[in-house]
Amino acid sequence: MTVMTTAPDKRDNAPILSVRDLKVHFPIPGKGLFAKDRPLKAVDGVDFDLYPGETLGVVGESGCGKSTLGRAILQLIAPSGGQVAWLGKNIVGIPHRDMQPLRRDLQIIFQDPLASLNPRMTIGEIIAEPLVTHKPELGKDEIKTRVKRMMARVGLLPQMINRYPHEFSGGQCQRIGIARAMILEPKLIVCDEPVSALDVSIQAQIVNLLQELQREFDLSLIFISHDLSIVRHICHRIMVLYLGNVMELADRDSIYANPKHPYTKALISAVPIPDPEIERNKERIVLTGDLPSPLSPPSGCVFRTRCPFAQEKCATDVPTIDRVSETQEVACHFHNSI
């Protein structure tokens, strides 16, 4: 079996999704009775394109806004600004009625497989819900047939259709979640940390399943994860987020072979490698400190407080996104010198 290792050819296709300057600010009540609300900038100006059949990895530490970004794209959280163009048409702020039919093509898979399934419903009912919602004209029998077909496709025994979520293991629950997302044959699935709650031996099963489904249905995936080793495996392009800002966006080979942003370098070097020789002798860039509060992000470059290479300029000027090659963009003043 061959696997697509490079992104589908962009020149032939228009992007399926274009995100421009997307912002999500949550109002946080100010301290004191008459204080103004302060904005928590969860996502602060994100741009990217996603092409058909492509997987974009969104990586970053907790609190970097990656899950918020995924939900803002799906309009599950209303963005505060910017545009999300689905098949060329902006969907930010459009009426509920117009959004409804688009939901057929936009799906999501969650991190906690059990929590994402209604414990009072059988898995047959759970997987059928999107069909019942969008294609009520299909009869009961047809819906059941399709549910069973999809269950078999994702590796679940179809005779389990009347069982309840708590009767399944984590990996199987995630398969149920995938079946529910796939039943309408969507064009885009946002995968929000789909494997991080699973055991190591099961993670690979789920990743392989997602890749198979992607090939079979020409799916586009947005794969949100904090695990850079999984991301290296499944994603064509990778976007690194820090405090709601894009630090680096590049195709897989460039970013792992030649990371440009100091944050990307630190992230990659911090991932433990399951090989004692390599792990004990590798060079590491150790970041000090913790993520600053997104309520009061640092001035200039948001990463400067933890950056080992920070200079004066970083505190004053917000770095622009530089295109360093055909496939790599980076937001750092000094990416050439470090």
């Binding site: 850079l228 080793s229 999984i230 490698i273 399951p274």
Partner: peptide, 9 residues
């Protein structure tokens, strides 16, 4: 089955 960051699969 461990995904590895130092290898392109």
């Amino acid at each position: 089955s461990m995904p590895r960051i130092d290898r392109a699969n």
